[in-house]
Design a protein around this nucleic acid. Structure first.
Lengths: 351, 351
DNA sequence: ACTTCAAGCTGGAACGTTCCAAAGGACGCC
DNA sequence: GGCGTCCTTTGGAACGTTCCAGCTTGAAGT
């Protein structure tokens, strides 16, 4: 195959450095550095000369070089388990806003909910020497988290971890699940099924919350759980599974909004009315749930707050203001919409 | 306020370097470097010794230092105009996948649709010396884009730019708008209004496409445009504006899905049926449009493909395989769902 | 036995910053 | 005039890699 002769890399000229600026402004590189960093103790005359040289040369400080000598990057690594789930959009936006305030850059990454890929994503962030790591609902093993903690402050969002080294911000999944179940029960439902999140982060606690609430309400005999894996299709399949049951559940509590929407689709396809025949509750209260056409009753999780809190945890540790773990739990609330309603009157309980 | 004495930064010990590894394996740092980079020409014995020393020390290569000497970071900067819009989720995922294949990391950033913030976001990526820049529907001025081009290869997604230095990947907005309008017309609609994207990227071309199609179909007299700004609330407000018109439009072509959904909400609130009274078409065919409860007819834009193509453009230029601009246009298609239907029979056209 | 060669390995010079100790200059004071 | 003090400025040493030229060693070729 005819190979073109090696072409030089894109850069037409190598970019100007601090030395070029210094030469042009007729001062030392140190002085230029001071101006760039906004230190005082520089004469007005020289400051202006430097400023102008920078302008003329179109100089841009090299953050890489700075990071090397300072041994900090002012960058935060964020590993998001699922970029498509709008809940994480909220989380990210909370992180970003707070990070910008605090003068940090944010580097995103994802492993697409695959543990191995997530591990690689984390490793890759660590190689970049991020100053801190935020893991949003990671699916990796606790040992991976502990390993990361040895290098850098870590905060885990929305996932319970036995790793003692990291901070965490979660919502109270137990309470949230209770809210959902109790809401259904208060509407007269007794056969309340759960579409769970499988191995996903937080899924187990929500499942436990569901079980505990059912028990507390004396509905232990009606417990019914199908795996939905936190995805729309998972929720869809799970709901189809539930529809094979007899008697049918009259309410479904899905472990997140996305899977709840999958369930809604399955119900509609089966010709069942929501909430007439089956009520559905989601979790996360994403923008999806709020869409008037969907109007999904959902447990509100305040993703942006979670992101913001996570950012604050990291910041405290980076600044060295704290070295003991902090575990923040935000309380969920229930947002009632039109996907839930009274249990159908003809529903013959089988208790 | 009682101030704690300055605590040392988090790092308990500074991390091991290549030199520590070299000492432990009793070889030179150069040899270690070779092993890390997977070069051959290293004896099996030493390779193994190094591998083991790395393991024992828990050594992690410092990408920062490497980038400095190599003067390339293998990082790509991506500036996304709107993280909340699921269309960009598709784009991002296309970029990420291809980037991972090609061995690049991706650094995201956003300016939240505010030109000044977007400019700062771009600048911040350039300071990090990313090897290339992908701008997804940026709202910044062309001069900013040109400035960025001087430093690094740039590709602009989904936005027409007069900047001649950058590559671009767009979908054919003109054709897409035609598809939407013609679809409505073929269903018998004559009063077809447009909710446009205001100053957003690509908005003007879609508007032109709308105007041209209306003209072509002899409906120039019925042209009606309201600004929706590409957001859900914008679409909602715009639709309320449209509802003040008499006679009412029987079809609305919104410049993107998100604003179309806002419009749907306004219609529903006004007690109008979709598509019975008013048909609605969106643009982007995001996952939102596909939700069965929304079922929005929409112009499909293949966000993942656009991201992937953008990534490929950048890669070609980084590798120096090309230095002339490439402008890729992907053809949109129409996905018909249930938000569009025949024009209402009683609709008295005023032509 | 002498040269040639390749394979394996090595130390030093970059890369573009920041940080620090110290130099220089201006000024006032004794 | 010498000295201390303050403000401003400076050069050199890091930071942790990669790259390169050159060193050793031993085997093959003549």
């Amino acid at each position: 195959m005819p190979r073109r002769t090696d072409v030089k890399p894109h850069q037409s000229q190598s970019e100007p450095t601090i030395l070029d600026v210094a030469r042009k402004a007729r001062v030392s590189k140190s002085l230029v550095s001071m101006v760039i960093r906004g230190e005082d103790g520089v004469s007005a005359k020289n400051r202006e000369a430097v400023r102008q040289a920078i302008e003329e040369l179109n100089y841009r400080p090299n953050v890489i070089a700075r990071s090397l000598v300072q041994r900090r990057t002012r960058m935060l690594g964020v590993m998001i388990s699922d970029l498509r789930n709008p809940f994480f959009g909220d989380v990210v936006s909370g992180i970003q806003m707070r990070a910008a305030d605090l003068g940090y850059r944010v580097l995103f990454n994802t492993g697409d909910r695959v543990p191995n890929l997530e591990e690689a994503a984390i490793e890759s962030l660590l190689e970049l020497r991020v100053d801190g790591l935020i893991l949003a609902a990671p699916r990796v093993d606790d040992t991976i988290i502990e390993r990361a903690c040895r290098a850098v402050p870590v905060v885990v969002l929305n996932r319970d971890t036995s790793a003692t080294c990291s901070d965490s911000v979660t919502n109270d999944n137990l309470a949230g699940a209770s809210l959902a179940v109790e809401h259904c029960a208060s509407l007269g439902h007794t056969r309340i099924a759960h579409i769970d999140g499988g191995t996903g982060a937080g899924a187990n606690v929500r499942r436990e919350g569901y079980l505990a609430a059912m028990q507390r309400l004396g509905l232990a005999a009606n417990v019914l759980t199908v795996e939905g894996g936190f995805t729309e299709n998972g929720g869809y399949q799970a709901a189809r599974e539930l529809l094979k049951q007899f008697p049918l559940p009259t309410a479904i509590f899905a472990a997140n909004d996305v899977s709840a929407i999958g369930a809604l689709k399955a119900l509609e396809e089966a010709g069942l009315r929501t909430p007439g025949d089956v009520s559905v509750v989601g979790y996360d209260n994403t923008s999806l749930a709020a869409l008037p056409q969907i109007s999904l009753t959902s447990v509100q999780q305040f993703g942006a707050d979670i992101g913001r809190l996570g950012m604050e945890c990291i910041f405290e540790r980076i600044e060295g203001r704290r070295s003991t773990p902090r575990h923040e739990v935000v309380a969920p609330t229930l947002v009632v919409r039109t996907s839930t309603g009274p249990a159908p009157v003809g529903a013959h309980g089988h208790r």
